[in-house]
């Protein structure tokens, strides 16, 4: 079987062939919607917000305007504790742009307490912990920015840290 295609080395691609370059400058402002705007407002106030579905009898976070299971509207927003358990985690030496870092970032899925399915939570970061000591199932607590610095963003929580006496 004969297959076609012409290979370029990195040097050829970047320095030898004629390439047309383009760096688009595009900005977006996303209205955060009915449910996530409540979640982000909650973060600004130092709280984690969830939502309760009457017909499925379950509490989940991040909140949504409708239940993806039973397709009923969801409007009972509830305050959840700012604690949870580590559902899974990584010790990451690779950043968004694929560049490498010496001090690892510690992404984790945090299963937030007070929810009724497992997991129910969100992606965040861990800190104040030796990476070698992180375990799935470990109890963690949110570390918040000072109230004055909070803007209604997921980064209003700086990171999660291991709970003392857990």
């Amino acid at each position: 079987m004969k297959v076609r295609g012409t290979k370029l080395t990195s040097d050829e691609f970047h320095n030898k062939v004629i390439a047309v370059k383009h760096a688009p400058e595009i900005e977006y402002d996303w209205a955060t919607g009915v449910a996530i705007s409540k979640f982000l407002k909650g973060l600004k106030d130092g709280k984690i917000i969830g939502v309760y579905c009457d017909s499925c009898d379950r509490t989940v976070t991040p909140p949504r305007m409708f239940c993806e299971e039973c397709f009923s509207p969801m409007s009972k927003y509830v305050d959840l504790p700012d604690t949870g358990i580590i559902n899974t985690f990584s010790i990451a030496y690779i950043k968004t742009d694929a560049s490498r870092v010496e001090k690892p970032q510690l992404p984790a899925v945090i299963d937030i307490d007070g929810t009724s399915i497992s997991p129910s939570g969100f992606l965040h970061l861990l800190d104040e912990i030796n990476p070698d000591d992180i375990k799935i199932g470990m109890k963690v607590k949110a570390v918040w920015k000072d109230a004055i610095d909070r803007t209604g963003a997921i980064t209003d929580i700086k990171y999660f840290k291991k709970m003392e006496d857990a």
Partner: peptide, 24 residues
């Protein structure tokens, strides 16, 4: 776009998270 991208994720992260969960 609202609650994950501001954390600066890399695609490899979610594979790492899934792989660890599977292994554990």
């Amino acid at each position: 776009n609202m609650i994950e991208r501001p954390l600066g994720p890399n695609l490899v992260w979610i594979f790492a998270l899934e792989m660890r969960r599977y292994m554990e």
